[in-house]
Design a binder for these strands. Structure first.
Lengths: 164, 164
DNA sequence: CTTGGAATGTCAACAACACTGACGTAAATT
DNA sequence: AATTTACGTCAGTGTTGTTGACATTCCAAG
């Protein structure tokens, strides 16, 4: 196989071994990434699905159910089960859309915001530690590769509202 | 909104917004990361759990059930369900340990290796495309941040057998 | 004004994949 | 001989996902 990097300035010598290492890095890192929130969620009898819903409602207050559906990429039945428990527990509230009364615009209650903060504090702490350990250049590269790895549709979701 | 991008050698000032963006990048990228294998697995009536098992048996032929258990971080009951279907379908075979006859050392059959190749080809293709798009520096940073994000125990698993 | 479609909710059934707990067996270790 | 280790298995449960079918409300277009 190619041991000499191809000429030109983009000297990526991508052996299968290197790529495999990247694949495993994603696998193990994702586990670390979710570990802290998972612990908090378990205490309160919620799951990752609740985390995701709460996260995106926090990020975009007033988003509709169908938008959330598109972001999460699950069926409405699946999302609805989660949303119902969040309503019942008073973490999320739905307000009827102003222009379109069919829409239910989702918002976090104070209680919901409190859970969101607990979860994202934990997750940010780990992310911050990783960023610090890796340094600014690494952070830039991290984001660039992840972005390139997304499906185009998801990349659009990601870039929406911009941010860095 | 970013006033000054985090690139260059400037220190990191890690705003919550920046960190949130990193969190979402992980979320969306992981979806892309698993999308291609998921399609192949569905065709053949397997799931992600089978993928993980096959991947690590391929990576370390002859590994024991308990090692695999430690890597995957699941219960033996859960792993056993998956391994049984892989045995039954003739993708994996278990050989009694030479020195310790209690051990079952796991190996892929030709058929198993064929599935592994299909899965990792797909996953590597995406990884390669992402790497190419991002460039060598980004790749380095990507790996560095992911490594820093792992739990220490998982990092040891990851670094075992070294590589790159 | 009627009709079609969009946005949403809900019931029911099912599957993958995780968990706990308990029990069993063979082989290694002490 | 007793204990521990490695592994398997039976049974039950929970979360999160899926299809499929059906109802409601409301906007928009003919």
């Amino acid at each position: 196989m190619a041991e000499t990097p191809p000429s030109g300035e983009s000297l990526l010598y991508l052996t299968d071994e290197q790529l495999r290492k990247g694949i495993e890095a994603m696998f193990f890192a994702y586990r670390g990434f979710t570990a802290d929130p998972d612990r908090i969620l378990e205490e309160r009898d919620y799951g990752r699905a609740h985390h995701r819903a709460v996260h995106f409602i926090h990020r975009t207050p007033g988003l509709t159910v169908s938008s959330l559906l598109a972001i999460l990429g699950v069926t409405k039945q699946s999302l609805n089960r989660v949303l119902r428990t969040l309503f019942d527990d008073g973490l999320v509230e739905a307000r009827v859309g102003k222009t379109d009364k069919r829409e239910r615009r989702l918002h976090l209650t104070d209680k919901g915001a409190e859970l969101e903060r607990a979860l994202s504090d934990a997750q940010r702490a780990r992310m911050r530690a990783a960023y610090r350990a890796a340094g600014p250049q690494a952070v830039q590269g991290f984001r660039t590769v992840l972005e390139a790895m997304m499906d185009p549709e998801m990349r659009r979701q990601y870039l929406r509202e911009d941010g860095s």
